[in-house]
Design a protein around this nucleic acid. Structure first.
Lengths: 241, 241
DNA sequence: GCGACTTTGTTCCTGCGTTCACAAACGGCT
DNA sequence: AGCCGTTTGTGAACGCAGGAACAAAGTCGC
């Protein structure tokens, strides 16, 4: 989805160019493609190749890469290893970010065991649930703590990212506890809009909303009757956000 | 919209206004907020109230709602029940969409059991995995089928949305099988860019990418050193996507 | 060493989406 | 019935992101 909710910006025009939100999201995708290519032994890629693999326009890709600094060689392409290095630096991936998961239900369980997190520099270092029966039980090798201990544990383990997988009603309290624990970045899977201080960043992933968006496209596609066709291209591949 | 018929012949209503992609995503959020409010007995809301609850600008909200047709009363606000009805019609939620989940690992398991899907009109009617040991085992009350049977089963059960939770390498084959089974909407959790025909819609949710975006903001926030500040304001709430 | 080809990095432009601002419409009150 | 406050719906401006086109720069072949 896209990022919205940008409000009037005094614009801190500090040193280098500002990086558009959308570009940050794409850079993360390039990173994914690049590491996959490096594993296959690819040492050099042109913008055309990389753009194709990432599903974006090559001009857009080059512009995105210009934000990370010049890493390419004209007439040749980009050195994959150096590009990965530069993107990781821009995205702040040089240091690991400790992750806490709140709400150890089906989804929380899955995330606690999800390889993709530690594999990409996001070690899960704390699990929380309100259920006393779960407290102490190890999930994915890590014992579950009670949500009351969120602030203390988050500070102690230097948690920088909190993931909320609780039911809707519990999401805001969980969020407040994370904020009290110094967490300033939150990934929210609960279908509610969290209220947070201005210095806290919330990214929401609502699985049902994703399905509803697909439903809209399905409706427009099959029963082309009724109202409103979708704006934008009729073309196929749409990569989320 | 709504033919003010200034010049007798209002614009052909057939292709009524195109709905921007971003608006569709927001409408799904409004729907979520509205159903929650209705449960609390709220029968009327102003654009200001609803916008606040959804975390968007009120003008944006009104424009979004204009795509679904006039449901508001000036001086009063919107009738929550009728608004829900209209949004559901626009999003194609009047008919249920049968969902198939491919890859019954941690995440697939969680999604198969996820209440939010059936509760919102997306019954999960098929599960698939490549692991013979899983085939036949019921997960969330539904037995797992082998991926080879994807095309036949999808056609038989009229699956309209496929959810891919397989490892990266298995995602493209799984996608191809779904497409062969007539599925035209795919939600992809695997960290790869799927290649599909033009008439297939793919929405990708990459959990690690979400964390990387948060990492970027964390890096900009805490160690304001190095390069590039983020575009836009330093201000707070950013609702993903 | 020189020319031609390839590819990057950037500039300009177009189009879309968000926001502002205002007129029309509606309910309530006197 | 008429006025007044409120809120919708929309027309217009602003800002930003994406795409095309081009110049600089570097490599490869001869």
């Amino acid at each position: 989805m896209h990022e919205h909710g940008r409000y009037g910006a005094p614009v801190a025009d500090l040193p280098s160019r500002a990086v558009p939100e959308a570009a940050v999201a794409r850079l993360a995708v390039y990173l994914r493609v690049l590491t996959s290519m490096i594993e296959q032994g690819v040492t050099t890629m042109s913008s055309e190749e990389l753009a194709g693999a990432a599903g974006v326009n090559s001009a857009t890709l080059r512009k995105d890469l210009s934000y990370v600094g010049s890493s390419g060689t004209r007439g040749v392409g980009y050195d994959t290893a150096r590009l990965v290095e530069n993107i990781e630096r821009l995205l702040g991936l040089t240091r690991h970010h400790s992750v806490a998961v709140v709400g150890i239900g089906n989804l929380g369980h899955a995330l606690a065991n999800y390889r993709g997190f530690p594999d990409r520099g996001f070690p899960v270092t704390a699990l929380f649930d309100v259920d006393e029966d779960l407290v102490g039980i190890p999930v994915g090798g890590l014992p579950v703590d009670h949500i009351d201990s969120i602030p203390a544990v988050c500070i102690e383990r230097a948690v920088t990212i909190g993931v909320i997988c609780t039911p809707s009603a519990a999401a805001q309290p969980a969020c407040d506890l994370l904020v009290a624990g110094g967490v300033r970045c939150i990934l929210n899977f609960a279908p509610v809009v969290l209220q947070v201080p201005d210095d806290v960043e919330v990214s929401r992933v609502d699985l049902a909303v994703e399905l509803q968006i697909l439903s809209f496209h399905a409706a427009r596609r099959f029963c082309g009757d009724e109202a409103s066709p979708v704006a934008g291209p009729v073309s196929g591949i749409v990569v989320g956000r």
